[in-house]
């Protein structure tokens, strides 16, 4: 469950104060799929960063699974991210020095999970990557990299998955594959997904669609 209460974000740009996110209220219950759309600079990534606890809001509260994350320290936020939030990025952000399997192992080892290797291996099997397990990211295609990134995001079975333009760097075939994967994860695992995208088709798959413009909510659609 994600609850955002009167959250805003203001930054200093030169001598001016710039409000990148106007005060916003949002509630996403467990297992829901939220998509955020809008042009560049509309505040989509800022909202995602705030929900992930990667950035601090100028005002308001952000509650994740009953915990007000605006009061947590850096280390507490890191631990919360490790257990409750998975990330999928536009540019994959796999660790280049580690193989596909080792990339998936990282969050499991940080959380000190038992049977980490088995869990990682099973995830790679689920995502049809088992034969690429021992390849470095540089040896994988874009679609494969994004599937490894999704496997890594799901490693600790987080209740929330945050995806920042996950298809933005993929061809149409791989985009569809990733879109299907996210939908499946939402349906089968009941994972709450917050998806930031320019892809309106992908956004339309979501339960809730939020359109931002200049840091404000332009429209909100709920199925």
């Amino acid at each position: 469950m994600i609850e955002i209460k009167n959250v805003s974000k203001t930054m200093t740009s030169g001598s001016e104060m710039l409000t990148v996110l106007q005060p916003l209220d949002l509630f996403v219950s467990s297992g829901k799929f939220l998509s955020v759309v809008g042009p560049s600079g509309s505040g989509k990534s800022t909202l995602l960063g705030l929900i992930a606890g990667l950035d601090a809001p100028t005002s308001g509260k952000i509650i994740i699974d009953g915990v007000d994350i605006t009061t947590l320290s850096e280390d507490e936020l890191a631990q919360l991210r490790g257990l409750k939030i998975g990330f999928v990025f536009q540019f994959f952000h796999l660790i280049p020095s580690l193989t596909a399997l080792e990339n998936v192992l990282v969050p499991l080892e940080i959380a000190r999970k038992r049977d980490a290797r088995d869990i990682a291996y099973d995830l790679l099997v689920d995502l049809d990557l088992v034969d690429r397990a021992h390849h470095l990211p540089s040896q994988l295609s874009g679609g494969e990299k994004q599937r490894v990134a999704i496997a890594r995001a799901l490693a600790n079975a987080p209740p929330i998955l945050l995806a920042d333009e996950p298809t933005g760097n993929l061809d149409s075939t791989n985009s569809e594959h990733v879109a299907d994967l996210l939908a499946t994860i939402n349906k089968k695992r009941l994972t709450t997904i917050v998806l930031v995208t320019h892809d309106l088709k992908l956004a339309s798959e979501a339960d809730i669609r939020l359109e931002l413009l200049d840091g404000q909510v332009k429209s909100r659609y709920e199925k």
Partner: peptide, 11 residues
Amino acid sequence: SVLKCLGATTS
């Protein structure tokens, strides 16, 4: 940054 996103603390 990725490690911090994945739950690793600074220490």
